[in-house]
């Protein structure tokens, strides 16, 4: 086969990643449940399920519903709290040669900061601050739909964080570029987007909502073009790196996101229908680079303007 040498490694906020592929928070737990199917060492990073300063019970069931080429979820950020996370989940992940991005959630500025402080002296590589979950009533998206609040929470988190901070943005806004600029102005090291789009499904046979929460976050291949558009817009608006996500289900989708301006890509809902999709995309990116004789993946980032 070809002797053409390629580099898939990227630098993300000063953290070297062997490749740009990670997983979208909430779709992969902390990797444990997937670890007998996927070699976690192959991934550039594992992004964990959101963790708060204390356990959250989440929403009533049903929490998920399928839609055409997509799905809705309203899990409500059920999580074991930071103590169990550090003892069990982080300890588990540190056995692997992959970077760890911890998704942080909270109901208030204090709760976000609390988690960030607890993680400050741990062996975590990056923190992703979830200001965009549509399924919790307080916190979450409240910070993600107002640029002033987004900037304020970014600043608050930055003063305590010892790791680079990624602000995770909601697509449920009029101007996502403005949100990204606000986070950048607040000192964010990176942004990730998109979180899910708020949606609804009605069960016509039972004449009720498909989800107990009535609304849920829509994800899956159906949202991919929206995500590509938003990553592109944000890439034009800010100078900090981007993790692009939203409906990535193939190598082609991942490359598209990188060309739009993402330095890294997250695979989310696709893990549910193809548990080993992340490995396939890592390999697929290499094949793509060889096919088009692209020596360095960094030459693809934001290459389409």
């Amino acid at each position: 086969m070809s002797e053409f040498n390629i580099n898939t490694a990227v630098d993300f906020c000063g953290i070297p990643m062997k490749n740009p592929v990670t997983v979208a928070s909430g779709t992969f737990g902390s990797g444990m449940e997937y670890s007998d199917l996927v070699d976690l060492n192959v991934l550039g990073a594992v992004t964990t399920k959101g963790v708060a300063n204390h356990p959250w019970a989440g929403n009533p069931t049903p929490r998920v519903a399928e839609t055409k080429s997509g799905m809705l979820n309203a899990i409500g950020l059920q999580n074991p709290g930071i103590d169990t996370f550090i003892e069990r989940d982080l300890a588990f992940l540190k056995q692997y040669d992959t970077r760890v991005i911890v998704n942080v959630c909270g109901h208030s500025e204090e709760e976000y900061v609390d988690v960030v402080e607890r993680l400050a002296d741990t062996d975590v590589d990056l923190l992703e601050i979830n200001i965009s979950c549509p399924n919790v009533k307080e916190g979450g998206i409240a910070f993600g739909q107002d640029p002033k609040q987004a900037m304020a929470i970014t600043k608050a988190v930055k003063t305590k964080a010892k790791q680079p901070i990624i602000m995770k943005l909601s697509p449920n806004v009029t101007d996502i570029a403005e949100m990204a600029r606000a986070c950048e102005a607040g000192g964010a090291d990176a942004v990730s987007l998109i979180n899910t789009l708020t949606g609804m499904k009605i069960d016509i046979h039972r004449r009720t909502f498909a989800l107990a929460n009535k609304t849920g976050g829509m994800s899956g291949p159906a949202v991919h073009p929206i995500a590509v558009r938003m990553v592109y817009q944000v890439a034009q608006a800010v100078n900090i790196p981007i993790i692009g996500m939203g409906g990535i289900a193939s190598t082609e989708d991942a490359i598209e996101m990188i060309l739009a301006g993402a330095t890294m890509v997250s695979v989310g809902t696709a893990n549910f229908f193809d548990p080993t999709i992340t490995q396939k995309i890592v390999a697929g990116i290499e094949d793509y680079m060889r096919k088009y004789q692209i020596a360095d993946i960094r030459d693809l980032i934001g290459a389409v303007r």
Binding site: G26, T27, F28, G29, M32, E33, Y34, L37, K49, G58, T61, P62, R63, V64, A65, M71, N73, I75, Q78, N271, F272, P275
Partner: peptide, 16 residues
């Protein structure tokens, strides 16, 4: 029985 997504315990959709 409950609505599931991942089926393997990662996504926390199918809790009781």
């Amino acid at each position: 029985e409950e609505r599931m997504a991942c089926g393997i315990g990662a996504c926390l959709a199918c809790v009781c």
